[in-house]
Design a protein around this nucleic acid. Sequence first.
DNA 1: GCCGTTTTCGGCCCGACTGTTTTCAGTCG
Length: 586
Amino acid sequence: MAVQNADIARIFDQVADLLEVRGDNPFRARAYRNAARTVGEWGENLSEVLSKTGHLPRIPGVGTDLDGKIREILSTGRLSTLEKLREEFPPHLTELLSIPGLGPKKVRAFYEELGIQDISGLHRALLDHRIAGLRGFGPRSEERLIKSVEARLAKVRRYKLATAAQYARPLVTLLTGVRGVREVVVAGSFRRRKETVGDLDLLVTTEDPEPVVGRFVSWEGVERVLASGSTKASVVLSSGIQVDLRVMPPASFGAALVYFTGSRAHNIALRRLAQDRGLKINEYGVFRGKNRVAGETEESVYRILGLSMIPPELREDRGEIQRAARGPLPALVTLPDLKGDLHAHTRWTDGHNSVREMAEAARDRGWSYLAITDHSRRLTMVHGLGPAELREQGEEIDRLRPLFPGLSLLKGIEVDILEDGQLDLPDQSLLSLDLVVGAVHSKFSLSRADQTTRILRAMDHPRFNILAHPTGRLIGEREPYDLDMLRVLRKARERQVALEVNAHPERLDLTDVYCRMAKDEGVLLAINSDAHAPGEFDNLEWGVGQARRGWIEASDLLNARPLGELLDFLRKKPSKTRPEGPAGSG
DNA sequence: GCCGTTTTCGGCCCGACTGTTTTCAGTCG
């Protein structure tokens, strides 16, 4: 069982937790924390890199010592440093750190003074009123902690981006209506278009903060107020999501927007850069001594640091700052760049609308093309199409085409990739189509080797054009299947296959990291809605966000190309050899 | 524990809010 980067990250995070509780050098703990984040987001599997090349790549924040510790984890699956630290504390003590309001100092006090070892121990101590007697704790702490612990026992969650957007909308409307308000922006990970968000961060600019905070905390959708000051407040909505509000003067809008958009790591890197230049940066502006020298716009903040403007989706401290110091960042893809959608369903299988209705919606969006890609026969529960039904659907498309002069309706299929890598329709059927989208809908638990071989084989089929939702994950519901993505990408380039960025809010598959990896490997992507109704074309917005997080430009996208170029790509040259045999069966 | 073209030692991001404190530590984002 190969060690994943996430395993290394988890171990480093645990070391950091324990170092903090122990009261060790805080910068040492931070070093582990930083390394955990960087390694956890590292694009290539470090275990594989090490076995192939004999050394680890140069990873920022990983020096000689942590390099050695990563090697130890890769070879043994454990870290002796962590094991030793664990001996000093009860095994579940660090779980307490996940409770809002509890940090390392308090957790340590609970342990040393009351012998509390885990969350249920804390719960008992709270109910016995033992906590309120501790130095630094009073009845208010007790009351808050009881709520937090009980909420924690009821499990916290993250929200899909599209879900968070629904909760944000009425609040933006509410605050925009307060007299004197200039700007209302949902910042934080929402603005960075992360696939899930833990809470919503609202930034409001006005000269008169009080009525804004007042309106916010008294809104009918608020279930409880966690904190409320003159310029800052936190609430939990009845939907369960936490919303943090910050009110700032208009002159600080840009600096505040940078600050509250994050990410945390990006902000820390910016402030370091500011220090090097003798500047100080905070949410009010950029300062030289006591003079504010920038801050009204985001551009001004970046400019004074010697950086070109960095789009929110790139602000993860994954090289965007170094790149912005050298010149403009890539012009990331935008929704209007898309010239069509290459993955959509109709009533022929599990869609809710006719081909005609889907085509009308596509035309109304001004697209040049729309591919109809219903399921193949293997998916019996949705009445997947066999050769005869596919032919009939093709005839319907032929009849509709004259009605849509500006829109090319493409005949396609979302064909199942069977367990052995064959496609779920005969070659003859596939040859009659404009494009073939292939997807895995079964046997998710194959080994990494078998799953990879299965998909590589399918991609060898001469009609295979797009690999749909390449890892099969459903956010919060189903883990991705195990896959050697690098081999898939290299095969895709070799076989002229595009990979999909499925824009459905539950999928967003590929991830941002894989998007960037695909770009590095020279593989084209297609941002597709997988729409089952015309309204779901709107989901493309989330796919675009995901692609932007992966540094994707219009030139990296198959469906940002004009029709002629798209068709050229789809009509790829037949391969000279078919080393793994015909993939389509009879 | 990391890092460095002012540095291989001595730094390491910054401010608001809370609760308990009587001047501030801890936590959070």
